[in-house]
Nucleic acid binder design. Sequence first.
DNA 1: TTAAAATTTGAAAACGTTTTCATATATACC
DNA 2: GGTATATATGAAAACGTTTTCAAATTTTAA
Lengths: 340, 340
Amino acid sequence: MSNRENKITILDIAEKAQVSPSTVSRVLRNSAGVAAKKRDAVLQAVDELNYRPNIFAQSLASGQSMTIGVLTQNFGSPFYDGILQGILQGLEHSNYWPIFADGRWQPTVEEQSLTLLLDRRVDGLIIVGGQFDEAALQKVAAETPLIVVGRELPTMPDHCLYLDNFQGAYQATKYLLDMGHRRIAHITAAVGYQKSVDDVFRRRAGYEQALRDAGLEPDPQLVVEGDLQQQSGVLAVEMLLARGRSFSAIFAANDQMALGARLALYRRGIRVPDDVSLVGFDNMPSAAYMVPPLTTAHQPAVPMGEAAARAILAMINGRIPDLPRFEAELVIRESVSRQR
Amino acid sequence: MSNRENKITILDIAEKAQVSPSTVSRVLRNSAGVAAKKRDAVLQAVDELNYRPNIFAQSLASGQSMTIGVLTQNFGSPFYDGILQGILQGLEHSNYWPIFADGRWQPTVEEQSLTLLLDRRVDGLIIVGGQFDEAALQKVAAETPLIVVGRELPTMPDHCLYLDNFQGAYQATKYLLDMGHRRIAHITAAVGYQKSVDDVFRRRAGYEQALRDAGLEPDPQLVVEGDLQQQSGVLAVEMLLARGRSFSAIFAANDQMALGARLALYRRGIRVPDDVSLVGFDNMPSAAYMVPPLTTAHQPAVPMGEAAARAILAMINGRIPDLPRFEAELVIRESVSRQR
DNA sequence: TTAAAATTTGAAAACGTTTTCATATATACC
DNA sequence: GGTATATATGAAAACGTTTTCAAATTTTAA
């Protein structure tokens, strides 16, 4: 089929450059001193014959795959997308290549994807979110350099890269309070039965703390659970309305649910921000183009992805990774009005 | 670092099962008949020792990488995302693994990504969109099984998988006409200097043909160029307004620009759909949650990705790929009003 | 100069599979 | 039952690198 039969190997280079294969390998990987003259001859031969090393032979012999496994939960979501893009960028000039797998929020799929990645002998692993318990992750970390993005794991702080969700939510809620809102609803999320989406959990905590710090007792009737998807934002607002408790603002745990909420409000003829104010979390690309443009806690997904890539590279090279703590930054647009 | 030193090889299996390595290989790949007794012994040994074959040794020996290269242009865009997800699904039970690269709409990056993919000795290649000229693609196709998604290449019809963009745009425009609109603006796109985004080009053609079929002459003053991103939709509407030509509807070549257009109209206090109707193309996930929900030509990205995966698998196995022609389907929501 | 140390180099042994080839065994046919 | 054919099997040769080891050469130090 594929007629890549013109395969030229390291032997061809060796012959053409009048040196041994070992020497060719040495100049190519820069692994030992080689006389300038020979080095040049090799380089020239490589160039002339357009030689490209066989990656499988390399990996087999060296024991390194030169790949980084990336396990995510949801290819299509705007936030994960940003992370992936950041990883791609961070790996760009590194000889390492990412290979992706999607866990789809399903523990079985997730586990399967992990073993598939491990079978591919990845040199490092970046796990974005997910539902593995800490023990499982520790076992993985013992075998392979590992970075977990978007989770805060108490027992493995030197493997985690995450954003301060509490602070972001606190800030968002505080902003609503400062704008005069007192009855602030919250759309949170619970996936499955475990509270595995702990970032969302922290956002809720930040929301509640901000209320308390303002002397308000959080009203459970004002928080409702979605599943992070748009549609659940619609349902959440319906639920809120059905409960009959009044509210002048909604803080959604992510932009996608905020989007759904906004639609539900539109359908009911409730104006945003005139009647109800709306704040999201993530700052997904389309948030700036919502009607009205959404005020939301910006999560620097791309930089986080880049940092993850840098960190895993550091670990592979035996260095200690730099794991900055990221902060959410509230970007104020037009979905919040001042409450008199 | 990684203490995967517990490496058990095919030799260990052979020893434990009292057969030769060759036999182990044969039962594992099912490449030849093996006595039932030995087969069972091998399988049991594999199970007990939890053996996982070394993928690099396999690839080196067999000459197959068991990977499919996927070259896309824009990781984050909703449409590309759908395609990727479809590919992932289509490959799921196939033993093949996709490896992704992003061309970022930059010809040099694109080219570089391609050679990187080829260096990885992919068994097949799926190129989604992109700007390679046909000659270059033909050269690639001569070396490696190739499927091009989202482009219609006259000289290589048996490698292309695309949607009838003309038809989709025609239908969208016709719908606006049927709703009584006569002055219909269009937001198109031109990337770079070549009209390489030929799907967008065809959409424009469909738009113009629908107008002509309705006895209307397309007005160049009513079409404006963007770059497929949201922001350009904003700018496009500004431009349209500045030109002073009246219009009662806008057909945008993709949803992202429609989103931008919608924001620009909002800013100007122009109501959708009361004052101006809006139609998009793609049916990206958030289109249904726009305010108002967007009427748009649905592009079945996920099924297209799946079809691409199936097709490349067929080609790899020497079969003739099934390359269905996809049709866009107009999904009617609430962004179009009847013009009296 | 000469001995010791450092640097270059090539031969050959990994790395862990698949696959070819030849042999041994089982099955079919007359 | 004997030959011809098909089927199972193992030994050994790929696959294309990297890396170890030892030898050869050069440099350094005295």
